[in-house]
Design a protein around this nucleic acid. Structure first.
Length: 850
RNA sequence: GGGCGAGUGGCGGAAUGGCAGACGCGCCAGACUCAAAAUCUGGUGAGGCACCCCCUUGUGAGGGUUCAAGUCCCUCCUCGCCCACCA
């Protein structure tokens, strides 16, 4: 071959890898393992450059670690169930069962075209009954453990997708998929009791040292632990004169204790300043406590809230509004009657739907109190200072401090007060210490078709009955026409719905809702371990070998969805005895977004770059090289047509440089074995050292730093050095043939994880037919990365003025003498007083003069 | 409002507190060519100059620590992402 022809080379090697099953992960416990996983794609039909980037990063690591001697598991699969496929099916009138395999076939072709080194024997696809059977199996296991339950709840509902959404799927009150405005709806839904693991999920974030901090921080915020106190406020008799401050007890027409207002606060130390209470308009007590003369206004306000859309209601900037109910509660510490309001800013589904307001120490309460002329009472002062009386405050003082105006509790610090006041309430049965979480249980039933059927049967006699394990899978029927016009389309398939109760044998009906696709992806990483096993979801014996995932790669958009759910599943499966690990992934690499012309690539913007076009024009190796070189993996990447040209040129230079020695190939084959350092000239030795230095840098950048861009830069530098060297093989064959052989061999080996096709081709044409991926990655010797002489920089008052060559390790007196005698330095120090001289060995001398 | 990042040439981006701008793109000049493309060689932060010697200046702004700051500390500005009436 005279010219670099990527298409020819790439086709040849892809065929070779496929035939030889080169990337098979071996179930062999004597080998050290490495599990490298990229988040599996939703097979929508075509890969975009974001996918390409993710998989190329994973492939670089997989190929690298194979060369490093690891038994690498690098599998791929298809996250194929879910809404987009169903919506496409409705639009095109083609069932997802037909369309999905075609999409998968195409994406798989694209992956092979990119030379991604997957073990295709472990391929999984979630839409197949042999996969989702295990979703159902896990559902039943979780059900038995009480980790799955059915609850009535007001849920987020997308009117466009006609489905319920999890909290995590609502973004700015809009559907995460279609951006429709989400509404609220009362339904019965299946939920995972993820809150049971809230503490565990929070604490174990500590163990995730290999995760980016911003991801663990986001999870921490999402779990949202707050420590505080529940307080029960008695309601003063509504018939009592509002001027009278005498506590009169509570109404007694309720058989529960719901005639108290329970609030949650993180700042019980401010309770002496709690001068009113605010309920959510939806709070169940509102109806009961509202005084007759206030009723009309209260009802009007509630009606107004019902009409206000949720975005408006929960916008931080919207005006705080409320109305007085006419009722009073009793502050358990001051024993004073404090008015009860309802207001738009108190949300029914957060905390208890009721808050105690301390205007002096909470800015929101402060503004509300000013607006409605409510008392403001200062009860905390700064540790080292004073604070104006409540009415004179200009804004709330929200910091911790010293309690004042708090009766017998005055002079305690906020921290002490929290403990003591909570204890006080606990002793009187009026409150208790508690930890609350922002995290909600994960509602996962979806009223859609293209998902895993929930294995539950409803029987008139036996109630809710789980499908027995031996009847799994409950197969999704395909004799249905999807219209997108109804909820839970499965309810129309009578052959599916009508069944017999497994317990009593009488007629019964199946659950017609399906599972959220996030269930599929919560445990798929374990299915790769036993992808074809029909007895268990995965074999524990091999899970113990392969798990956890060593490096997990995907986009940061999954920070609180998938990455929280799969941690939860791991812990739950651990507690079921199926796994021995606490956390599913040791290290997480979140790759940045691929942009073009300053915008995220999208069809609507028309700035999509197709992997097919790129590979056709430049080849997979150039596409891979550019994806890795253009930016560090965690940063966003700007796609550049000129940039990929540059990558292509570099591979051309490698090809041309290497093949320019074609006539020596047979000599080069074993040449590197005959390398004798003592025969090298000074210049030849420099080339030799350059290779060692490069190996050192590339190893560090790939293995420790995940800075693939600088690793590639080092390889380019090495190429620049060795290609500008005046090779003279004819005159110095005994030294230069071995040296060149050494150079080319290491160059190709280092470049292999990045550009596997080209390097495989060149490598086998010179060295051997051995599979390059089985050859160890080059290693270096520290002594060859160090030069005998070093350039020492000379500064005067911190400014660079000259530099000198010194033998490595020269001591201070030598360096100083050389520096002071340096011609250029003379004019900066003459007629000046030398105050001191700083010497950093082998690096720099700084002469401080006055 | 809270949290987390990030601000470095024309662009993407390099720099364990120690030569700012590696590497690449782009651009300029030259070689090759009838010409162009490709390729190769050299140059390329800004300003200055007695122009291949140097000098000044320069990493969002302003202070500080240090012999020495893109890097550490403080104040501020801008942008991005995530969360958000969180009780």
């Amino acid at each position: 071959m005279k010219e670099y022809n990527p298409q020819e080379i790439e086709t040849k090697w892809q065929k070779n890898w496929e035939e030889n099953k080169s990337f098979k992960a071996l179930n062999d416990k004597s080998l050290k393992k490495m599990y490298i996983l990229e988040m599996f794609p939703y097979p929508s039909g075509n890969l975009h450059m974001g996918h390409v980037r993710c998989y190329v990063i994973g492939d670089l690591l997989a190929r690298f670690y194979r060369m490093r001697g690891f038994n690498v598991m690098h599998p791929m699969g298809w996250d194929a169930l879910g809404l987009p496929a169903e919506n496409a099916a409705i639009k095109e009138g083609i069932m997802p069962q037909i369309r999905t395999p075609k999409n998968i076939e195409n994406v798989k072709r694209q992956m092979k075209m990119l030379g991604l080194s997957y073990d295709w024997e472990r391929e999984i696809a979630t839409y197949k009954p042999e996969y989702y059977k295990w979703n159902q199996y896990l559902f039943l296991k979780f059900y038995e453990k009480g980790l799955v339950y059915k609850k009535r709840s007001s849920v987020n509902y997308c009117p466009s997708c006609k489905t319920v959404l999890a909290n995590e799927q609502v973004i700015d009150q809009k559907c995460w998929r279609c951006d429709s405005i989400v509404t609220q709806k009362d339904v019965m839904e299946w939920a995972f009791r993820i809150t049971k693991y809230a503490e565990d999920l929070l604490n174990d974030l500590e163990k995730l040292k290999g995760w980016p901090e911003r991801i663990t921080t986001m999870q921490r915020n999402w779990i949202g632990r707050s420590e505080g106190t529940f307080i029960d406020f008695d309601i003063a008799d509504i018939n009592e004169c509002s001027e009278c401050s005498r506590p009169t007890g509570v109404r007694i027409d309720s058989e529960t204790d719901s005639d108290k207002i329970r609030v949650f606060t993180t700042r019980i130390d401010t309770i002496f300043g709690a001068t009113y209470i605010v309920l959510a308009p939806e709070h169940p007590l509102v109806e009961k406590i509202t005084r007759e003369d206030r009723r009309k206004e209260v009802i009007d306000f509630i009606e107004k809230m019902k009409r206000t859309d949720k975005i408006e209601r929960t916008n931080v900037n919207s005006e705080k509004e409320g109305v007085f109910t006419g009722a009073y509660a009793i502050n358990p510490f001051t024993k004073k009657r404090i008015p009860v309001f309802i207001a738009n800013f108190v949300l029914p589904d957060y905390g208890t739907g009721a808050v105690m307001s301390v205007p002096a120490h909470d800015q929101r309460d402060f503004l509300f109190a000013k607006k409605y002329n409510l008392p403001i009472k200062t009860v905390i002062k700064p540790v080292d200072g004073d604070i104006p009386e409540g009415e004179k405050l200009e804004k709330a003082f929200e910091d911790y401090g010293i309690m004042i105006n708090s009766g017998e509790f005055s002079n305690l610090t906020s921290e002490e007060g929290k403990k003591i006041l909570t204890k006080y309430l606990e002793e009187r049965n009026q409150g208790f210490r508690a930890i609350t979480y922002h995290l909600r249980d994960w509602g996962f039933s979806r009223q859609r078709y293209w998902g895993t059927p929930i294995p539950i049967i409803y029987c008139d006699h036996c109630g809710e009955v789980p499908v027995p394990y031996e009847q799994l899978p409950v197969v999704l029927p395909d004799n249905i026409t999807l219209t997108g016009k109804d909820e839970a389309p499965l309810s129309r398939v009578t052959e599916f719905v009508n069944t017999k109760c497994p317990r009593c044998g009488k007629d019964a009906k199946r659950e017609v809702e399906t599972m959220d696709t996030f269930v599929d992806s919560s445990w798929y990483f374990a299915r790769y371990i036993s992808p074809h096993n029909d007895k268990v979801p995965f074999e524990k014996e091999w899970a113990d070998y392969w798990l956890p995932i060593d490096i997990y790669i995907g986009g940061p958009e999954h920070a609180v969805l998938h990455l929280l759910y799969f941690r939860f599943f791991t812990k739950a499966m651990r507690d079921l005895g199926m796994l021995s690990i606490d956390e599913p992934a040791l290290r997480l690499l979140t790759q940045g977004i691929v942009y073009k012309d300053g915008a995220k690539m999208s069809k609507s913007k028309g700035n999509v770059v197709s992997p097919d076009d790129i590979v056709k024009k430049y080849g997979a190796d150039s596409a891979r090289l550019f994806s890795l070189f253009a930016a560090p993996p965690e940063k966003d990447l700007e796609w550049s047509d000129e940039g990929i040209e540059g990558s292509f040129r570099f591979l051309n230079r490698i090809f041309n440089f290497t093949t320019s020695f074609r006539e020596f190939f047979s000599d080069l084959k074993d040449g590197y074995k005959r390398l004798d350092l003592s025969t090298l000239s000074k210049e030849e030795a420099a080339v030799f050292r350059t290779v060692h230095k490069t190996i050192k840098k590339v190893l560090k950048d790939i293995e420790d730093k995940w800075q693939f861009n600088t690793a590639i830069a080092a390889l380019m530098e090495m190429h620049n050095t060795v290609s500008s060297f005046k090779w003279n093989l004819k005159n110095r064959p005994d030294t230069q043939i071995p040296l060149l052989s050494f150079v080319i061999r290491n160059n190709l080996l280092m470049l292999y994880p990045i550009a596997p096709h080209l390097t495989s081709e060149l490598f086998t044409s010179i060295f051997s037919n051995e599979d390059i991926s089985r050859i160890p990655f080059p290693s270096y010797e520290e002594k060859y990365t160090i030069d005998d002489t070093v350039t020492v920089v000379i500064q005067v008052n911190g400014k660079l003025r000259s530099q000198i060559e010194l033998p490595r390790g020269s001591d201070e007196s030598v360096a100083k003498e050389n520096a002071l005698n340096d011609e250029k330095i003379q004019k900066f120090i003459e007629s000046k007083e030398i105050v001191k001289v700083i010497y950093v060995k082998d690096k720099l001398i700084n002469i401080v003069v006055k």
